[in-house]
């Protein structure tokens, strides 16, 4: 899952990037409107975390531009502006959620989770495929009732496969969802990553879950 943070305050941006990355999200962070507009149009993010008061304009302009271009990317505004009028304007311009500063990081995580589930039309917080169960809120994977120990990124990839079931995910698509713009990747990093995930699933008694589609990528059927 890939998230874009548009936040001009260094400390907040840094904390959010670190916290979300540790939860398995691929996180890009920009500190101004221009970069934010550019990235949000270029890359398909799963959620935008948007501050309103940016040095070169209002975050609402980004929101407007996004919706005018028919981009359905979920947006959560995180702002110090806390009046009903501010929130009302935000929702009218197409935000999906609004969180006022100062906020609890845990709450932001839950709200981002909810936005992503809505984006992939998952109602409820558990995805099930045979013996595999993914609890999207607790971010835990289980085989029958045994917990499968996965890293945050491994969980994120498994989550992506489950959300886009039966669809072939290219290596670049997978990379886009787990690595931010800043991360450097080697050419076979996704293959290595998928192999490690397969081994963990095999150990948990789910040997043939991830299939390779030659020349295209991977899928879960």
């Amino acid at each position: 899952m890939r998230i874009l943070i548009i936040e001009d305050q260094n400390l907040i941006g840094k904390a959010l990037q670190k916290g979300l990355t540790e939860e398995g999200y691929a996180v890009d962070w920009v500190t101004n409107l221009v970069d934010g507009i550019h990235l949000s149009q270029e890359i398909e993010y799963d959620t935008l975390v948007l501050d309103l008061m940016l040095p070169d304009g209002s975050g609402l302009d980004l929101l407007k531009a996004l919706r005018e271009n028919n981009k359905q990317t979920p947006v959560i505004i995180v702002s110090a502006k806390d009046t009903l009028a501010d929130k009302s304007l935000g929702f009218r311009l197409g935000t999906d959620d609004y969180l006022t500063k100062p906020f609890d990081f845990e709450e932001l995580l839950l709200r981002i989770g909810a936005l992503i589930r809505r984006k992939y039309q998952v109602y409820g917080h558990t995805l099930v495929l045979g013996d595999l169960k993914l609890d999207l809120t607790a971010r835990v994977a289980k085989s029958k009732d045994d917990i499968i120990l996965l890293t945050a990124k491994e969980f994120a990839v498994l989550e992506l496969f489950m959300l886009k079931r039966a669809k072939i995910l290219s290596r670049s698509k997978i990379a886009e969802h787990i690595y931010s713009e800043a991360a450097e990747q080697e050419s076979n990093v996704i293959d290595v990553f998928i192999n490690r995930l397969r081994r963990k699933l095999e150990k948990a008694g789910l040997p043939t879950l991830i299939e390779t589609v030659r020349g295209e990528g991977y899928t879960i059927r």
Partner: peptide, 18 residues
């Protein structure tokens, strides 16, 4: 004041999560 409070709050929360 919200800005630095928010920054301290977020930094602290992320720091103690793990």
């Amino acid at each position: 004041l919200k800005t630095p409070v928010s920054a301290i709050h977020s930094t602290l929360e992320v720091l103690v999560r793990r």
